[in-house]
Simulated assay, not measured.
Amino acid sequence: MDRCPAGSVWVEKRREINMKRLYGVMGLLILMGVATTVRATDCRVNGGVWTFVGAGGTLNLRVPVTVRLGADRTRIVLEGVRLECRFSGFGGSQPWYTDYWATSARVGPAWVPGPKFTREGTGLRINGTHYNSPVPNGIRMTTMPNNGVGYPVDVTPYILVRNSPTNPIDVRIGDVLGGLNLEQTNNYNTGSAALALTYTAANNFSISPSTCTINNNNPIDIDFGNVHQRAIGTDPLTTTIRRDRRLTYSCPDGGINTPITISYKGTPSAFDTRLLRMSNPDVGTALVRGGSAVQVGGSFLTRITNSGGGDDVTFTLVRRAGSLPAAGAISGTGVLVMGVP
């Protein structure tokens, strides 16, 4: 009779120990289940390798883009990136699980312009809509359901073209153009990740980002006609082969009064840096204003008053001293660019 109660107590203690062990195992399984749901997403650019970014992490990508003037001439666009992201499946994920990419204050400004654009107005075109900087937070651009399919992240940075004169932008291949910052969230937990995409230039690009124009943006054709080689002088100020032209400056918005610079852009001649290189290496073309030759790569100071202005200039044909240029047609190309001092 005495053994039965003792046996009962011993059995109950075993049950208590077993239950504690069971609770411990269940707790471990629950914690493991929570850990496996802390996932994020995969992304790639231009059809490259899919790269995974985990929750709390940042996916850093770098991609070259084409810099060009937009069709409506109001924006300079940085295009050519095909960014795709997809839901990163994991054990226990449900069919209704969905990831999102959006602008967010948590990851900072959606677009940070590169060094050459810090004084310019910028923005992002997101799914066809233009948002000037500072781009609002909370703009959702991509929804990625749990199906393993890559979805485009439709974002294109741009630089605004001004209505008033401004200094030219000169982009060289490899220049850092800016950075895109986005946040990935979901509908199944509080985890998130970040995307930091650095844009670099894939091409050289020079432009005065202004709607103000020289000669209404029409080409300035300088035709010297048929000349004898010996008639071409060796000094840009005294050569008799010359053509006078009127440069007119205009801005679409009224009331603009400002000093401006007109730069003579192109490749200088090997024998005189004041001259634009021509197809014949013994011949160059000078831009003369106010009795002085404007060096290629240099500029002269002038003015816009009430959104208009102008200058009389002369283009002269010059030969290398001591040479007799070969007979035949010659040609060359230069650019006049409006800027501010």
Results as ranks from 00 to 15, higher is better:
300 F>V: 08
325 P>G: 02
307 S>C: 01
303 R>H: 12
132 N>A: 15
153 V>S: 03
246 R>H: 13
157 P>S: 10
278 M>K: 01
74 T>Q: 12
327 A>Q: 11
35 A>Q: 13
224 F>G: 05
43 C>T: 04
65 V>N: 04
23 Y>W: 11
268 P>G: 01
322 G>H: 03
87 F>G: 07
285 T>Y: 00
77 V>K: 02
8 S>A: 15
199 Y>V: 01
235 D>Y: 04
68 R>K: 15
121 G>E: 03
257 N>C: 02
260 I>W: 07
172 R>H: 13
190 T>R: 14
127 N>Q: 03
149 V>Y: 13
59 L>G: 08
115 P>C: 07
314 T>A: 01
134 P>D: 05
64 P>I: 05
134 P>E: 05
302 T>C: 05
77 V>P: 00
268 P>A: 09
324 L>P: 00
257 N>Y: 03
228 H>V: 03
293 A>E: 06
150 G>A: 15
295 Q>T: 15
198 T>H: 04
337 V>H: 00
244 D>Q: 15
290 G>I: 06
312 D>W: 00
325 P>N: 04
198 T>P: 00
327 A>W: 01
268 P>Q: 09
213 T>I: 01
41 T>M: 12
318 V>M: 00
284 G>V: 02
125 R>L: 09
219 P>N: 10
197 L>D: 11
260 I>T: 01
216 N>K: 12
